[in-house]
Design a protein around this nucleic acid. Structure first.
Lengths: 214, 214
DNA sequence: CGGTTAATTGAACGCATTCAACACGAGTGG
DNA sequence: CCACTCGTGTTGAATGCGTTCAATTAACCG
């Protein structure tokens, strides 16, 4: 979910990911199930093998905010505090590898773990800053365009799947689901994107998307 | 600029801050001057001694986003990449201590530096997530309220200074400066806040602010 | 005390929201 | 195979809020 995602892929091969892949417990998370909940104790690291997840948090009045969307290769649970600040839920059936922190420490060393946490935290920060940028865009059309653009960029030309609902997109963009739907229809009407069903799309014209990217 | 700021103040006393305080070069930054610019090479760490600064970034079409506002004790320049992703500018005359990275490494050790960077990155992430929360609030009134509330919370009951312009606040909140001004007038009209001049205020009634805090 | 920038206020417009109705698709059972 | 249902997505119409452009006032600094 960030334009720079591809540039920031592990600069140095971290053995953390290797350790998780080798020693991690395979976890099957079914659609809509929680991987962990807000306020849960942080004790494990997770690496997404397949499937998509979202992180979210709720305000005291029931308002929901989407943290971000995660896919294969992404790490979750790399928080420095003792408790999770977001809930992680599966958008699709997921295959996840989990490894206890203590075991990571023993396997790859504390310093290595800290370094990996730093790297992941930095990536999270970039995601958050990118997300903030989208939230500051002027109108709904730009927000939805930027969102689709970022997704499509990851997919690299291929038809892109939307694993999340319109409500998820709305909460991510700070809009209502109706407005999201309207903008999608509008963008399709103007041949900027092309939808095949409600959750599969392709970018037909990148030119309106580029000026709003960073 | 975050509600949780006080809770997250250095859990373990990092000698990084000590090193900067002892070996750092004292820097006088006058109002509106740049401490560093977007795309500048990252080579120094900064600790604010006095004064206030803002970080900002510009989009290709001239749009500005405020990263955050910084005050005494805050660290800047703790980025992991080679180039600054935001510009840092002084809102008021500032007293800043600066220390070259290489020197930090020699003085307190690389591991210690990494740990400090991790800690600071984590705090930045929390700030960003808090900022995102504010940006997702329903209307302008809530955004401005949340902003004032966070500022006043730091001040702790005392009359609070606003070092930034209405335009800065607007860019931070994703609004126009006119709307910010209107909301301030409205909140004062309803005796939620009380302004003494355009840039000094005090909260008179916290009850409308609490339900929107996280 | 002028001169300049920052902040406030006004009025009209446009866009996102709101509430509502309708369409579509997947899954189930008659 | 069709009818039914439930969840999800789309569309419509009216309202209201934030923006826009413009004018006025306040604050700041020589």
């Amino acid at each position: 979910m960030t334009y720079v995602h591809q540039q920031t892929a592990e600069p140095s091969p971290l053995s953390l990911a290797d350790a998780i892949a080798r020693h991690g417990v395979r976890l099957q998370v079914e659609r809509n199930a929680e991987l962990y909940a807000q306020e849960d104790e942080v004790d494990r690291l997770y690496q997404v093998v397949s499937g998509r997840l979202r992180t979210s948090r709720f305000g005291s009045d029931g308002r929901r905010q989407i943290g971000d969307f995660y896919g294969p290769g992404d790490l979750l649970g790399l928080e420095t505090g003792p408790r999770h600040r977001f809930t992680a839920e599966a958008l699709t059936a997921c295959d996840v590898r989990a490894l206890r922190r203590a075991q990571v420490r023993a396997t790859v060393g504390a310093a290595q773990l800290d370094l990996a946490i730093l790297e992941a935290t930095r990536r999270e920060l970039e995601r958050a800053q990118n997300h903030m940028w989208i939230l500051c865009l002027k109108n709904a059309r730009e927000k939805v365009s930027a969102f689709l653009g970022a997704l499509a960029q990851e997919a690299g030309g291929e038809p892109c799947e939307l694993p999340m609902s319109r409500q998820d997109m709305a909460d991510y963009l700070g809009l209502t689901l109706e407005t999201v739907s309207r903008m999608l229809s509008q963008l399709q009407g103007e041949a900027v994107v092309e939808f095949a069903g409600a959750r599969t799309f392709r970018i037909r014209d990148w030119s309106p998307l580029e000026p709003i990217a960073a």
